[in-house]
Each structure stands twice: as structure tokens, then as C-alpha cells.
Write a protein that binds this DNA or RNA. Structure first.
Lengths: 195, 195, 195, 195
DNA sequence: TATGAATGAGCTTTCATTCAT
DNA sequence: GATGAATGAAAGCTCATTCAT
């Protein structure tokens, strides 16, 4: 069994190179040759680890999602107050991003590449799950009587939209703190929700 | 005498076909042949009206921006209350979109095509102007004493982010009313802002 | 019978426009639209007078050849001395050219365009005839004893080559008198030939 | 490890195929596909070795010029007599050509392609240098008293014109020996020049 | 296993020619 | 007769993928 560890490490290296390049120049503009160069391997070698450019793209997406989820999960550990849950969820999503500006650009490409059709169903599912997570925080608050009764799914959608939108805007403007903006916006919502 | 054609009308027709196709399949994936097919003309004909695919793209962008601005301006006419201004601005942006689902997808492509570099500066400017418009509504509210004092630019950023994010989400989920979500979110903010 | 004269005049106009444009930008680079513009007619109109771009090209060639032959014939009228015939032939060829620099460029295109295959046989014939004309002058000189016996066809070839070559060179350098060069060269040959 | 290929050798192969095809059908008429076919490679492969059709063209030109210069230099080695220099120069130019008939046609295209503008200055320089080389032989002869005093630059121009013209003619007629014609013509000039 | 030379489908764009008016 | 809007074949070039080594 030679080099089992090596293989996985190399795949990660290639993935990393791909993500960096995707993020910097866009998925479509990134050539397999660019990834190979960035990863310090031959063009052909990539195909030992991934079946296609699309497969790399998929893996990149999965990787980013997992990073994000981990960031959020860490924040939510041992929090009880639904108001705090809402806030920490939002800041957790944002945290992963602000650390790694390049990756954000990548997110956009997830929705615009050739792969759109294929991605859509998957995105829908991921999105729906997030919607329900946030909605559950709101429902909890309503149940506990700390939130006014509102359409929790609609507000959940707005919360997620805020986050996506801030990230998008950050790509364009850069010169502000997403976290601060998000905190202000969430706080205002919480005040509006307060019973 | 040659065929008499309303060149401007035909250009609009081609632009429409292009926008629909861009929106459905993405700018990069859209081939000139697809546009030609959608417009019911020959491939070569497109070049009688546009110099390049990029030129069509630019025109599509301009067209969409103008539609949007008109929609917003209509809403804001004769409104005095800064709370109402904020709300109507948001609904105005959303309105243009919801009427024409296809066009929304196009918005994303404005940020991911080869043109990224070129577009960025322009986007930055447009974005900044919108930011200031919304911030002016908030400042006004603060001045009038109907809003608590807050970082108006930060909140303005959040408002716009909400709108972009909802549009993005709508592309993925489709099965909800952007307007309703936005109205709920804005109303909550207004309550949170209330003195 | 309306406009019979007009038609021929218009054809000439188009031909002239074509020749000017061919000469300035090269046959391949010249678009039918350019010719139309230069001729002040519509693109379609050209096809009322010529079947194709190739047909215009052919006609341009024929026209130039005739001009050349006329120029030579005028020079040769009433000359008896074979030495003088040789010289006046050469100067006659050159004369037509030096007056109309643009047309020279055209000559090159006669040998390099798509039409090469078709043109070749025709060129061969025209060339052969010129060769024989010049050879006849030399033979005459030999017969009369004013020229040493030489391979008249070979020298004829050289004479024509000198002319073509000088024209070619003129396109590149421009800053000299073809006629002066040719006269010097021919005179030296005549001296070398003298018995 | 990838296929081991002598890239330089392959480039030469492609260049050769291109030159043959250029020569047979003209630069403009030659499609990349034709070159690929002639070289026995795929269309894409050419672009591994050359950036564009124009780049191939440029390289072809350079290659031909170098062949020519080498042929001339070999002939001129260790010759003292200016008369002999003149003759060997001419035969040297012709020699390179006659060995490789196909390449000659290519020479014409150097002056007629889209590149005309770009090439012109370069051609002018190359031409001027040749002019001066030949003129120097003539001046030397005059100095030594073996040539009558003549306009050496004008005669130099004629000599080069003769060579170009003979080559041109050879493309059309083919059925004669350029070298023999050139030798006859030069010999006659030498006799005319003799003091 | 790793490579990069080779490939060709597929892209945007051009332009001679057609033809409805 | 005159026109120019419409066209599509054909060009140069790109790049994900394959595969001999």
C-alpha cells in the first residue's frame, strides 16, 4: 500500500491550487493548465485525482460549504438564547468569508458556471437546509415569547439574503467590515422582533 | 431600394433574445448561435447590430440598469416620510426584478464574466451611488428624530445587501415572493429603528 | 434602349474604384463594401455590373495590360533600329507604371491572390508573348550584325525580369527613377552586345 | 513521463510544411488546417509551436532570408575580382532559389499579405543593405579601373531587379535555367562596363 | 505514477453574395 | 435598376481531455 496518505495530500494540494485560481480569475477563465501550474504538477496529473474540471469545481464547493458549516457550528455550541443563536449564526457565516477574501469570488461562480443546471438542485437543497436552521431559531424565539410572531421562513430568507448580499457587496467595495454591518442589521431586527 | 427595416427595433429584438438567453443559460454558455436562433435571425445578422458578444452584454447591462432605476424613481415620487422612502426604494428594486425573472440571472453574470476587471470599477461606482441614496433616507430619518442614531452607511449597505441576496436566493428557490420577504424585513428594521 | 451609355460608364467607375482600392490595400484586404463605398454605389449594385469580386479583378488586370501595351506600342511606332526598339520597349513598360504608382501594387496581387491557379495559364501566355516580342528585337539585331550572337530568348527573359524587378523594387523603395535605372541597364547591355 | 519530443525538430517540420503550403497555394489561401495536414499533425498542435499564422509566416521569412544569405556568403568567400564578385553574388542569390522552387512563391507573399505595412519597413532595410553590397562591388571595380565610371547605386538596383524579376518569371514559366539567364545578363553587363 | 505533447470539437467573427423591396 | 439587410460557410484560435512514454 504505497503512498496512500500522499495521494490524499496531493489531492488537497490540487484542490487548494484550484480554489485559489478559481477565486482569483473565475472558474471559466481558469484553465486546467493554470491549476496545474499553481499546484506545481503536470497537467495530466490532475486527472489522476479528478475526473474533470467540473469534478474539481464540485469538490471546491463541498469544501467551502464544510468550512462554513464548521465555522457556524463552532459559534453555536452551547448557546441557548435564540437571539444569540441568530446573531452567532450570521457572524459565523461571515467569519469564514472575511478571513479568505479570495474564496468569496468563488461563491459567485457556483451560480454562474456551465454547471448551473447541475448545481441548482444541490444548491436548492443546501439553501433549504440553511433556511430551516435559521427559521428554527426564530420559531424557538417565538415559542419562548421573546420574539413577536412573524413568518419565520420569510425572515429566515431575509437573514440569509443579507449575508449573501453583504458578501457580494464586499467583493465590489471591500472597504468595510462585513461583520460590523451584519451585527448592526441583526441587532436592529432583534429590536424590531422584541416583544 | 433595399428592404426597409427599423434598425432600432431590430436591435431591441436581438437584445431581448440575447438577454433571455443570457439569463437562462448564463453569458459564457450562451453562444452567438443561440442568440441568433432565439432572435430568429442568422448568425451574421447579429453583427449588423452589435460589434461583438461583449457589446451585447454591455447593452444588456445598461438596459437592465435603466429599467431598475425607472422602477425605483416611480416609487419614490412624492414620498416624504423617510420610513416610506426606505421601504419603497427596496420594493422598487425588487419590483423590476420579479416581473422579469430571467433578467435576474443576468445580474450575476455581470460580476463573473471575463469583463470582471472592466466591470468592477463601474459596479463600484453604481453601488456607491445606491449606498448613498439609501443612506440619505436614513440620515433624514435620524435628523427628523424618527430613527435612532445609527451608522447610516452600514445600514444602507445592509439594505442593499438584503435586496441583492433575496434576488440571488430567488434564482435558486423561486417559490416565494421577494416583495413580501423584503417588506417584512424592512418593517422589522423600521421598528427596530423607531425612537 | 435607356441608359446604354450610362451602364458602360458606371462599370468603368466601379472598375476604377476597385483598382484604386485594390492598389491601396491589396486585393485580399479589399472588401466588396470598400469598393462600393469608393464607387459611391450600393454593395448590391456592383453585382449588376460584375458577377463576382474575381470578375472585377480579372477586368482590372485586363485593363492594366491594355494600358501597358498601348504605352509600349506608341513608343515603338516607326522605330527601325533594333537597339532603339529594345530601349523604347523597356521605357514604354516603365512609363505606364511610374505615372501611376498605385497600380503597381496591384500587379503583385495578380500573382498571389486566390486566383493564382486560374491566372497562371493566362500569365504564362502573356509572358511568353512579351518574351517573343523582345527576343524578336534581339534576333533582328543579330541578323543585322549590330548584336553579337547570343541566346535571344534568355536575354529577352533578362530584359523583362529587369523591368518587373525594378517595379517591384520601386514599391519598396520609391525614391528613385525607374526609367533612369532601366536606361542605364539597357545601355550597358547594348554596349556589351555591340559588335 | 510524457512523450519525449525534440521540440525544435518538430517546429522545423511544421515550418517546412507551412512553407511548402504557403508556396504552393499562397499565404492567404493557406489555412491552418492545410498546414496541419501537410505536417501530419492536428490543427491544435501547430499552436504548441507557433502563436499564430502570422508567427509562422514571420519565421518562414526569416528562414528564407538566412538560407539566401548563407548561399551568397559561401559564393563570395575568397573572391577578389569585383567582376567575379558581382557574378557570384547574383548566382548565389539564384542558387538558393533554384534548389527550392516552392519557396520562391513565398517571397511574393511577403509583400502582399495583411502584413504589408509591418513588413515594408523591414523589407526596405533589407533591400537597402543588398543595394549597398552590390554597389560596393561596382565602386570597387571603378576604383580599380576595370569598370567604366557609372552610377553604381543605379546599376546595383538593376542587378537586384534582374534577380527578383527572373525569380518571378520562373514562377510563371519554370522551363528555363535562372542561373544561365542571369549569367548571360551579368556577363553582358560586365562587357558593357569593361574599360 | 506522472507527464506534457497531441488533439479536435467548438467558439467568435468576417464577408462575398443573395434577394426582397 | 439599385439597394443594403440578411446570411452562413469558413476562418483562426482555445483548451479540456487523452494517452504514449
Amino acid at each position: 500500500m504505497p503512498k496512500i496518505v500522499d495521494k490524499e495530500a496531493k489531492r488537497k494540494e490540487i484542490l487548494g491550487a484550484a480554489m485559489r485560481t478559481f477565486a482569483k480569475h473565475g472558474v471559466v477563465q481558469t484553465k486546467m493548465a493554470d491549476i496545474a501550474l499553481a499546484a506545481g504538477v503536470g497537467k495530466g496529473t490532475i486527472y489522476e485525482y479528478y475526473d474533470s474540471k467540473e469534478a474539481i469545481f464540485m469538490d471546491a464547493k463541498k469544501d467551502m460549504m464544510m468550512t462554513l458549516e464548521a465555522s457556524v457550528a463552532r459559534r453555536l455550541e452551547a448557546i441557548e438564547d435564540p437571539r444569540e443563536k441568530l446573531k452567532q449564526f450570521a457572524l459565523g457565516v461571515v467569519e469564514g468569508m472575511e478571513d479568505c477574501h479570495e474564496i468569496i469570488q468563488l461563491m459567485l461562480d457556483f451560480k454562474t458556471s456551465d454547471l448551473r443546471e447541475m448545481q441548482l438542485e444541490e444548491s436548492r437543497k443546501a439553501c433549504k437546509q440553511q433556511l430551516e436552521t435559521v427559521a428554527s431559531f426564530i420559531d424557538e424565539g417565538i415559542q419562548l415569547g421573546v420574539f413577536k410572531p412573524v413568518d419565520s421562513l420569510a425572515l429566515s430568507s431575509a437573514v440569509l439574503a443579507l449575508l449573501d448580499g453583504q458578501i457580494l457587496q464586499w467583493i465590489i467595495q471591500e472597504n468595510f467590515s462585513i461583520a460590523a454591518n451584519v451585527e448592526l442589521a441583526i441587532d436592529l431586527w432583534l429590536q424590531g422582533l422584541a416583544t
